[in-house]
């Protein structure tokens, strides 16, 4: 099966776009995680639950009203509220605690959110129906690209740029940057630190929800969908360096593209050294491991990840 065919440029470009799309989704999740960890020193496993809730709320609203836009707006609004509530009721009490406590509490939150979703929306999962135009394809020259994939890429880039502007140009962004590198200093400046934490947590939750509602038309809203991706989002955070949004952006793109290219070309590549049978067995295993191998390798040479805000606690 693994013939040495010439490089198919069409295929390569579509795979790069697919990788970009995956990377941007990972970035939406990871940027919230890295901020929450970088600023509040809080490990939030339940971030994936926000991703799931975003998808479910959007699906419910779209199915009821038929308007995708209403779905998106209401979904994001509800996540700002849920994110703020989780911060206010639970996370806030635990910032001073051990990381172990964070892991335990947020795992408990995952169970609560997942089971509530099961009770509210049933086990079957929900689709977000797309307008006809988004269910089709776009032709650029001889390229045919599913149009919804372009929507994801466009939105991902848009949020990325908006976040960049927010962090580099606004007062909130300045506080966030300062908070990620030196928390005590921000407090010393007389900033209402509680409110800063609340806002960061809520924004992080909304971004996770946005990622969830973006992916749902491709997959669907389903229980536990966030638990499947949260680990990879953590890999992105770690590889990029905790607390660094910039690092999260680059490592998300690297991981998204590497993962996609691995799935596309690894069997052909291994076929050069191994028998077809062996390549067929090894390729899926190796491509599943690839992001972990990448992370471990980077950590061996840079134990603090690719980009690490200076002065961050270990």
């Amino acid at each position: 099966m693994t013939v040495n065919r010439p490089v198919d440029w069409h295929l390569l470009v579509s795979q790069l776009l697919n990788g970009l799309q995956l990377g941007l989704l990972l970035f939406l999740l990871a940027s919230g995680l890295t901020l929450i960890f970088g600023i509040m020193n809080f490990i939030n496993l339940s971030h994936g639950a926000f991703y799931m809730v975003g998808a479910f709320v959007c699906a419910t609203v779209v199915q009821a009203t038929g308007s995708l836009l209403t779905g998106i707006v209401l979904s994001l609004a509800s996540l700002l509220v849920i994110g703020a509530a989780v911060e206010w009721l639970i996370a806030r009490k635990l910032y001073q605690n051990d990381h172990l406590d964070h892991v335990l509490v947020t795992f408990g939150l995952i169970l609560v959110f997942d089971t509530l979703a099961h009770i509210i929306w049933g086990p079957a999962g929900m689709v977000i129906p797309l307008p006809e135009i988004l269910n089709g394809q776009v032709r650029v020259g001889s390229f045919v690209i599913p149009s919804y994939r372009l929507v994801i890429i466009g939105n991902g880039l848009m949020v990325g740029v908006a976040l960049y502007i927010l962090i580099t140009r606004s007062r909130l962004g300045m506080l966030i940057r300062a908070g990620a590198s030196d928390r005590d200093m921000v407090t010393a400046l007389g900033v209402n630190i509680d409110r800063l934490y609340l806002v960061v947590f809520a924004i992080g939750a909304a971004m996770a929800g946005f990622a969830g509602l973006l992916i749902a038309p491709i997959t669907e809203a389903s229980i536990g969908m966030g638990n499947e991706i949260i680990i990879i989002a953590f890999v992105v955070v770690i590889t990029g360096g905790i607390g660094s949004v910039q690092g999260a952006f680059y490592s998300a793109l690297i991981i998204g593209i590497l993962d996609t290219l691995g799935r596309s070309y690894l069997d052909d590549f291994l076929g050069l050294f191994l028998s077809n049978q062996a390549a067929e067995t090894a390729a899926p295993a190796l491509s599943a491991m690839m992001v972990y191998i990448l992370m471990a390798t980077i950590l061996v040479f840079r134990p603090q990840g690719l980009f690490s805000p200076s002065g961050l606690r270990k």
Partner: peptide, 13 residues
């Protein structure tokens, strides 16, 4: 799992 999750949360808080 709903109850289990709540117990875990309460245990830590």
């Amino acid at each position: 799992q709903l109850i289990f999750g709540l117990v875990l949360i309460l245990l830590v808080v």
